[in-house]
Design a protein around this nucleic acid. Structure first.
Lengths: 202, 202, 202, 202
DNA sequence: GATGAATGAGGATTCATTCAT
DNA sequence: TATGAATGAATCCTCATTCAT
């Protein structure tokens, strides 16, 4: 007699716990979140937590990884496959992607890495390798392609893909800290893109 | 001659403790720093800490304030008093100021605010009012003055002084998280300034 | 066979802890008793204490209440139900009751209330309502009934049921303070009863 | 050049400190009173306290003794010297004396002894020898004298001088704990005296 | 003598982790 | 597997006492 519901939950458990932990960490930070609180949110007993994650730190790492795992490659693929001209791509899909980052789980991950990162260098490395590095490389490739196509001129910008990241980063931190004081992040990003385009267009 | 282990220095103590706490928080973050550790760094007994700061949280607030108190007004004054033309000012004093921020104590404050800010909204407010808000206002005034003088054209940039902040912020976070992977923050900032100038010059 | 040092006894724990605390408080008073000492007596870890009682003060209150809860109503019921004539009742069941008080847990409660009461007015109120007030009311009712039956004459004594309490109180305090110097509390109480009877008999 | 005011204070200091400590202990009990609080009340620095009293416990003992020292012998002398008949003495000076005890510093001493006594047996002994024992002896002598004079008959009362103390004690405790619920202590004492007299008069 | 800054042992409380059930 | 009672190391904070000034 199979017990599918029970089975299914067993399968889903790690994800459920990880999600609950993400929510709790997002609210109170890592240090201030008790394991019990995560357990309660996940609708699971404290003891069970330790069946899936040996320590609170393991859980933390799993949370970071689970967020990273998701749509990292989204942008990258699009960059490679797009048929738009470079300017249209920047103003379209790329801008859209950038705008949704500050409100996305990535912002929470950044916050967690900033607080706890120094204690978990391997996690930071992991994040760098899998997200930052690949994202920046994709941007650089995109610009170089534009240059090769004659759409862009050769500038320092291809050495500093971080210029695309900068307003996104600022938007994230702003949301995190100064949620009360509104900032039109979308417009900020659009303006940065305007500036970059004005600067690099052939 | 061993240091006398009982030394009266009422005047200097708060600053000494605050400095020690800053260093400790910078290294390990607020939550992971034990009061005793700060005491040891300050060359002071655990008990004395509580003579000057009623709780660990009070100490935390004092640390933030002591850092903020310092050279906030530096830039602002210079902006108002300079005799340089706007472009030269941006490429000179303003760029210099921006470049030293990521390696300054401000970066540590940002890190602390990001981790602990949500629990201390009044501290975040304090920081916003005294640093962020005034800095942004100074930038906006600077741009508007350039427009009035006919050096700049009217653009969105005066609504988004954060565009100046963005590479600084990114540089700070980068240093905090990815110290291992070098990033030429100075050049990043110069490039952003180049872009801004290209964009707004009349 | 050594006792397993990890034992689950959820049901019994509160009572066990409360009893251990009572004993410890009885010996050393509230302030001088460490939570850890109570834990040790209860055969329990320090941490478990806080699972059942949120603070040391909560534990204190629980101790007081647990003692009060017990045989408060004993006397009261007997007073109402007795078929003895008033004099026989006073010399018999009532005297017996009075005599056992100074050596009973109530004495400890009194001591604790005297030391800590001013800081816990609600506990004192609780004790007054549940013990003192009801006890005195029962005595008053008993005397008035004697008057109605023609066994007693009308005197001030029905306004001062405390006259019954007085030697009990003195006996308690004496035991607490001057245990070394013997005092025949029983005889003291008998004599007070003699006096009262001589005074109020019709 | 003499400095009398200064000198006088030096003389008075112990008493001043002792008085301040008495007041503080009366309010908060021994354990909950900080040495610094006493110093503040005495208008003296914390350090100076330790010039006069080596430890907090010494101070405590001094407080007890200073209260006891005062009018202990008042009653005793009066008992010996009175020219009143025994009944008039009991209804007059003795009743007056008894009535003022519950509101007097003695009540505070009792409270302190009850809380801290078990830790300071020698203090309790001291109090017993100097106050309780002598007071009781005086009462016994008084009764025996009445018997010898033919005013009283021989009863158990001369073995239980505590019968005089009992309502005083109860009054004291009542004031300490149930200050809110009024009790006419004076009348209670008068009634006890009435009863005793009715019981022992020849 | 007088001050109050400085010390440090002691004690309450928290919370990640374990383990009997 | 799943539970949550039980553990104890870790940490904040207090306060009696000391000592440089």
């Amino acid at each position: 007699m199979p017990e599918p519901r029970y089975q299914r939950r067993k399968q889903a458990r790690p994800q459920e716990i990880t999600d609950a932990a993400f929510a709790a960490f997002a609210e109170n930070g890592y240090a201030a979140t008790r394991v019990e609180e995560v357990a309660k949110r996940a609708g699971v007993s404290k003891g069970l937590m330790y069946l899936y994650f040996k320590t609170k730190e393991e859980l933390f790492k799993a949370v970071i990884r689970s967020v990273v795992m998701r749509r990292v490659d989204a942008l990258i693929e699009v960059v490679e496959d797009t048929e738009l001209c470079s300017e249209d791509f920047m103003r379209g899909p790329m801008a859209d992607f950038m705008k949704q980052v500050p409100g996305s789980p990535v912002a929470v991950v950044i916050r967690l890495l900033i607080s706890e990162g120094p204690r978990h260098p391997e996690l930071v490395d992991y994040y760098y390798e899998n997200v930052v590095s690949r994202g920046l490389a994709a941007i650089t490739r995109f610009i170089d392609r534009g240059v090769k196509r004659g759409e862009f001129r050769k500038t320092d910008v291809s050495d500093f893909p971080q210029l695309f990241l900068a307003p996104v980063m600022l938007g994230m931190i702003w949301k995190l800290l100064f949620a009360k004081r509104s900032l039109n992040t979308d417009k900020l990003i659009d303006t940065q893109i305007d500036m970059i385009l004005a600067y690099i267009k052939a």
